[in-house]
């Protein structure tokens, strides 16, 4: 079967074609879709799973939290100086730092995960941009290609 390209101007037409294609037994691997904006319905049609990005966020967040707490405790103990009669390891303020670093590392890890999973930056497209503008596009790849 040859590679076929369908272009639509309207989301409804695109979605019905997509539905039709899926019912006709075309596997997800054969489909390549281009969208001008995010259509949640497509994901429902394709029954996509949440994916691994969550784990990037979790790992980042956890390591930020532990790292932050560790940094505070280590530095406080490395030269114990009393301030204001408070204990050397004062957990309440250290939790603030840990929390902030959790957010920071979580965000950064998520972003890194996104770049990895979405395969960005795309080198070919950086130099020679090509997209389909405001059209919805379905590319059905031929088997064996």
């Amino acid at each position: 079967m040859m590679t076929q390209t369908y272009q639509y101007e309207e989301a409804e037409a695109f979605l019905s074609k997509l539905r039709e294609l899926l019912q006709s037994g075309i596997s997800q691997e054969q489909l390549e879709l281009q969208l001008p904006y995010h259509l949640p319905e497509v994901e429902q049609l394709l029954e996509l799973r949440p994916g691994p990005l969550r784990f990037f966020a979790l790992t980042g967040g956890l390591s930020g939290f532990l790292g932050g707490l560790g940094l505070c405790i280590y530095t406080a103990l490395s030269w114990p100086l009393i301030t204001g009669g408070k204990p050397i390891v004062s957990l309440p303020p250290f939790l603030i730092i840990a929390y902030l670093l959790a957010v920071l590392f979580g965000s950064l890890a998520s972003f890194a995960g996104f770049l990895l999973l979405a395969r960005l930056p795309k080198r070919d497209n950086l130099l020679e941009p090509s997209d389909f503008g405001n059209h919805f596009v379905i590319v059905v790849k031929g088997e064996g290609q």
Partner: peptide, 10 residues
């Protein structure tokens, strides 16, 4: 970053 608007990216 070479965004194309493919489903995978979205």
């Amino acid at each position: 970053l070479g965004w194309t608007g493919s489903l995978g990216q979205w």
